[in-house]
Design a protein around this nucleic acid. Structure first.
Lengths: 245, 245
DNA sequence: GTCAATATATTGTCCTGACAAACTATTGAC
DNA sequence: GTCAATAGTTTGTCAGGACAATATATTGAC
């Protein structure tokens, strides 16, 4: 029995995207089992009334996502699952919400400060330039999980306290018209200082995960710099990556 | 003055790839400055004697790499640098070598052991099944940096000690015919046990970065599982990621 | 001058067609 | 039986053309 796909030519959704989504759904729902060899492109195109390039574009999208593998002379195969979503700019808030953890945010401070050297370097402004600083504590199940400190260039108005308590920062920035394009992160570890320990309900010297991130917009300008501290006892970073041969 | 590209039709290298590489080189060398608007696709195609789909394919590759941004009705723009290479399966050995750190590897042990539950789960075999265990210490400048423990399914022969001291594990696996496709990593932190502290030349309780990784081949089968410990005082993970809107 | 309507430029999507390259399976020679 | 040559299948690359969607610049009305 073959899985049936249906293409709606009256829809404004691009044809390749329709097919791509239906293929992805079929894989996700287990209708296309791992290891399955897909129908070849030409047949698939004929069957759906599409051209081969359109079918290829749909398949290519899933290859890029890591769900399919193509081999010349062989065919296109469903990857053996376990590979879920590829790496994206993980919004801590969204990640937790997706995991059903119902995150809470306590905004500690929103204020304008002269940029320290580290922040100035990351944001590409002169040292001492005014920037917005946002300090938050993220909690799950009533216990602190992370201490988040973000710096934004002074140009725009900083997000409102109420908004920050209701959702994640990246969502707010996107809503405010900032198009995020890429980010650099560095993840390290260090021992908690007494102040950090108290804030996070840990003992001084306890191991903490530290993450520094600079986010860039379409034109490559830095739009955010954050230095975050996570309780190692309660949090790990999960990544998934594709290997480009 | 326009940057000149040259396409060699007698070469076996695909045309789109030739163009893609020359574009990338021009960006890398600063001949195409960040923010520059590229010549539009149709002109570029005509100028190079290529078809528009071929030019698009070349550009698309760099968009996927995060070097270019396209906007309908506007054009294709060079991203404002700072974004270097996207995330890949970072081989610690290669990373260090690229940074000019001249890594050294001390192979502590290569042996077959019954798989503990954690390893068995990751590799998808029954608990107690024999697997190869490789224990290594990685050093730079004569000082220990990380303690690496890898598990491989027992099917293949384990790599030779001499090879492991000369290069990285992934390179060896690739050379042995394993095609790596994707990997899942989790990065956390914890305090060093006395044994770990001694091995890594740290004090007991010092913060260590821990990384667990499962690597998969084309068909989605796990081919390697590793649990690694890094000295937080000497190492951080650097990631770079693109945001899919 | 300000604003809306129009024109223009550029990428996005889609089609048809063709040949090349790589892998698999079969066939045939020995 | 073993190996090499051959044929068939499937994806990879490339061409050329057409129209749509979107952003920007220009024009015109008020």
């Amino acid at each position: 029995m073959d899985v049936k796909f249906s293409i709606d030519r009256t829809s404004p959704v691009p044809l390749y995207f329709q097919l791509s989504q239906q293929l992805e759904a079929a894989i996700e729902h287990g209708e296309l089992l791992p290891g399955t060899l897909l129908v070849n492109e030409i047949d698939l195109a004929g069957r759906l009334g599409l051209s081969r390039p359109t079918v290829r574009q749909a398949i290519q999208a899933l290859v890029d996502k890591g769900l399919l593998v193509r081999r010349r002379g062989v065919g296109t195969q469903v990857v053996h699952s376990q590979v879920r979503r590829p790496l994206e700019l993980s919004s801590l808030y969204d990640d937790l919400a997706a995991a059903g953890q119902r995150p809470a945010t306590r905004v500690l401070d929103i204020t304008a400060v002269p940029a320290p050297a580290e922040v100035a370097g990351a944001l590409g402004v002169a040292e001492g330039t005014e920037v917005h600083r946002i300090e938050r504590l993220r909690l799950t199940h009533g216990a602190p999980l992370a201490y988040l400190r973000n710096y934004l260039p002074a140009g725009r108005r900083p997000p409102a306290r109420a908004d920050l308590e209701a959702t994640g920062l990246y969502r707010l920035m996107r809503a405010a018209g900032t198009t995020l394009h890429s980010a650099r992160q560095s993840i390290g570890a260090r021992a908690a200082t007494p102040g950090e320990a108290e804030l996070l309900d840990e003992s001084p010297g306890a191991p903490l995960l530290s993450m520094h991130r600079t986010a860039f917009d379409d034109s490559g300008r830095p739009v955010e710099y954050g230095t975050h501290l996570y309780r190692a006892s309660r949090y790990t970073f999960e990544l998934q990556l594709l290997i480009r041969s």
